[in-house]
Amino acid sequence: MRPVILSARGITKSFGDRTVLAGIDLDVAEGEAVAIIGASGSGKTTFLRCLNRLEMPDAGTVKVGDETIGETAFGRAADARSLARQRRLFGFVFQRFNLFPHLTARGNVAIGPRRVLGLDRDEANWRAENCLAKVQLEAHMDKRPSQLSGGQQQRVAIARALAMEPRVMLFDEPTSALDPELVQEVLDAMRRLAAEGMTMVVVTHEMRFARAVADRVVFMADGAVAEVGPPSSFFGAPKDPRLQRFLRHLDHAA
């Protein structure tokens, strides 16, 4: 068994009097790819955002390796600087890309290495070009986001996250804002990443991707993990009635 690299315990989050996460537990092993599925509004995005502290959970702990996010080694609350450093343990890929429109593809990927890690310009650009090559964008390095297709933009966003050399990559429905014909190129890039041994947590509506690439699939419902298992049993013999209903709906839709 590979060692656990990401461990979330009792993640709880409410907005006003609406409880979105009612205590989520999830362990992810090094090199594992976990897919999260669930109905709209079930809190999948909120959970990912609680992992890298884009959202502050009300309760619960997130550990990456032996670091507890939001805490110093001595158990005290981390200041803004340490929190920023801890966020780098995660790469985050947004549904809507969130690329920096004023920078080229290369600039988008290099800005982290340069302005956060303090590499000099040549080193940062070199690293950016390597990461862009990994997602097959070497021909588009000098284009701005507005000159790229949605699929290309999302691959730049993946490269931007990779350039920070994260321990875990988080994807929040990375293909749901894309035209259907552009979905595959992004999924292919993610598939290669998984094959290279990157640890990944992927919120997705792409069941074929979850089936083919994920080591385990998680179903979220009512603010909790309702079912989790390898794709074969998860899709082949779902136990939770809510999951059974969810999968039936998908079959009808497809």
Partner: peptide, 21 residues
């Protein structure tokens, strides 16, 4: 807001976020 979140997600602190993004 997505711009700020993207910058935070790659570990930026307030000053470089303001100046470079």
């Amino acid at each position: 807001k997505g711009q700020t979140e993207a910058a935070l997600s790659i570990g930026m602190t307030r000053a470089p976020l303001l100046i470079h993004v």
